[in-house]
Design a protein around this nucleic acid. Sequence first.
DNA 1: GCAGGCGCTGTGAGTCTGCTGAGAACCTGT
DNA 2: ACAGGTTCTCAGCAGACTCACAGCGCCTGC
Lengths: 219, 219
Amino acid sequence: MRLLVVEDETRLARALQRGLTADGFTVDVALDGVTGLERARDGQYDAVLLDVMLPGLSGYEVIKQLRAAHVWTPVMMVSAKDGPYDQADGLDYGADDYLVKPFDYVVLVARLRALLRRQSDPRPPVLAHGDVRLDPATREVTIAGNDVSLSRREYELLEFLLRHPGRVITKTELLDRVWDARGVGYEPNVVEVYVGYLRRKLGPGLIETVRGAGYRLAP
Amino acid sequence: MRLLVVEDETRLARALQRGLTADGFTVDVALDGVTGLERARDGQYDAVLLDVMLPGLSGYEVIKQLRAAHVWTPVMMVSAKDGPYDQADGLDYGADDYLVKPFDYVVLVARLRALLRRQSDPRPPVLAHGDVRLDPATREVTIAGNDVSLSRREYELLEFLLRHPGRVITKTELLDRVWDARGVGYEPNVVEVYVGYLRRKLGPGLIETVRGAGYRLAP
DNA sequence: GCAGGCGCTGTGAGTCTGCTGAGAACCTGT
DNA sequence: ACAGGTTCTCAGCAGACTCACAGCGCCTGC
């Protein structure tokens, strides 16, 4: 079993490498996000252990780009409990499991084994709502069976909405999650513009405006 | 995690019940479409595993009626590969994922977990009082089942009242909490105006006036 | 019974929010 | 380099919303 550990704290990284090797895994280490992404993309790993707080490229960015590159290696995210991020975030971005620092080594191994065991069908399921269907694996979107071509932003906005069906989502949240994790430097109006684009391509009635609050997938 | 398995092959149904129970789920079984629909509609399940070929009521009918009844429990459809139906049909009817028989049990569990994860958007609980219901996640407000459209202020005022049922709340407090943290610059009369709007939309009798003191939700 | 105060509501002006078309800047592939 | 697509800002518009105001009715304390 080949593992990739992406972790910038050298001390922890080495400890994990030693322990996991002793437990029978073959372990590579990457000390920052960029090399982590590269290795994860190219190497044939059975699982990736991915820290969230990384120099260069955050863990979220890494997993996002990994999935965008059609790499479905199971990923276990690791983050400090008191960070600005939380579990839901990690899972949203496509992590398969989530661990909070500081973690117990035994728990880590158990979860890792469970992850490897259940990962026999890694293809993400199709997202569907009404007659709109979105396949994260191929990035294809269809409406009533007809293909729709979406730009990157349009696609990611739609995917985020489909992952939270029914919930009202504020423009700020969308800017945070679809545009930029830092979320600054954008006018909320971009969201309005892109919702407009989607409505033009997918028909009105799919995305509802909740005045003063945000947007929501029509029930 | 509560699951409902709707499957008429008793042998398979029992096997699934045993396996999924061992994997930590709480499993109910329905052996035909009619009872399946009933249970799915009434029970609070986290997911439904739904066979397509069912005596009484086909799986498609079940999911159609389920969605028509505004039940959005995630549904995984299961069907024989060589049946007259195919995957597209299932997704069209509003299934969230699709599995072809014969399926690998490990695959089933993996997909089921993915489904639950997607769905496990931690939704805030619905606020209810009398026949008024308010869902903070979707911002939907219903009275006796009928949708009511509220403006931002109206919504926030109602939400605040529902979060403090029974208590008498002064106008000053409402100005503080619903209008503006600084609470200055508003006439107390705005509150009266908005209480008026709410009474018009939700019927009198919901919000009681306590003369000289404030407002209170009727018991 | 009466006066004063409190709360309710109709009216309307000003504000705010969201939608859209136009266009500039920037990529990307040819 | 160029064409086409994409991303984002800006400005104008329409409609919804918010709130003050003023008049009226009702409650309450004397």
